[in-house]
Design a protein around this nucleic acid. Structure first.
Lengths: 156, 156
DNA sequence: TGCAATCCTTCGATATTCGAACTAAAATTT
DNA sequence: AAATTTTAGTTCGAATATCGAAGGATTGCA
């Protein structure tokens, strides 16, 4: 039964996230943001087309009111601006300011510098990145089609 | 220039956590717990010696007041009981009730059932589990001894 | 014994997350 | 084309989470 490895992988991923967040705490405070707003900031890639509120909520797996609240934090700090979409005027997109870009870059630098994953060899990094990305891709693909039931099985 | 893989690994870990939390949401509601209290419940292994409050706070990377709040949630739901440690009467340990054990077991079942990692092959699960555990072990070892500075070492 | 350190809790302040209800702008129906 | 429905986003109020400061109890130490 290889469920043991699955359980260990799930648990390790969970702890890795907790430890990483903990190590980022001081940086968040210095940059005058919080864990949640930092996650949002990282989702706004200045190289890409400015994402809409809906797209950002999807990436953070949160709902619309929460996203409005989080974006407000970044707007209040001068890191993001809301712009109306030209084609569909219901939509608003998030655009990084210069300060927003700079803060985001610092966040990424620090995240790489403190991540426990920095101890891995190049081969290990490659393996982890590709395996996890593959799992995510397949998970998102299979959740959009078929298999609607995810009920709690009490067979225990 | 293998920082690309490191960044991808860090990002995949982050998204995996968000997606997993999102997929657990319905189960949390059914079990009358929240994401945070579920994480705490999972840290109390009925096979092990009942952990102290301090030990649990360490495992969740949170502070003492927060842990008191979280344990109160589980106590109020009849899933955990506080007991005084006999040797050091300042300490309190968390002991699972029958309901706590059952809820915890259900949580673990569902977590394995919905995790994107379940799509991985046995070899991939093994690789991810051992690599991430190794990174965590080294990260925690190097943060407790020596090297008080968390400076960015660019020698890589 | 007296003092400092440790473990935990309480309290107040701030942050986060959500559902319900709302506005504005499309898309669809009739 | 007017009416209806759907969609994108916001506002508001409630429940939860997290933290720092301060306090009580117990232990360790001089």
């Amino acid at each position: 039964m290889d469920d043991g490895f699955l359980a260990r992988a799930v648990r390790a991923n969970h702890e890795l996230f907790l430890l990483t967040s903990d190590r980022m705490a001081a940086t968040f405070a210095e940059l005058d943001i919080t864990s949640s707003t930092a996650s949002l900031l990282l989702e706004i890639d200045p190289e890409q087309e400015p994402p809409t509120m809906k797209a950002l909520a999807g990436r953070l797996y949160c709902n619309a009111p929460n996203l409005t609240f989080l974006i407000d934090q970044l707007v209040a700090r001068g890191m993001v601006e809301r712009v109306r979409a030209t084609k569909d005027r219901r939509q608003r997109a998030a655009v990084l300011t210069g300060k927003g870009e700079h803060t985001r870059a610092t966040l990424m630098d620090v995240a790489l510098a403190i991540s426990p994953l920095r101890h891995l060899t190049t081969e290990e990094r490659t393996a982890v990145a590709s395996i996890l990305e593959g799992a995510l891709t397949r998970a998102k693909a299979s959740s959009t089609e078929g298999d609607p039931l995810t009920t709690v099985d009490s067979t225990r």
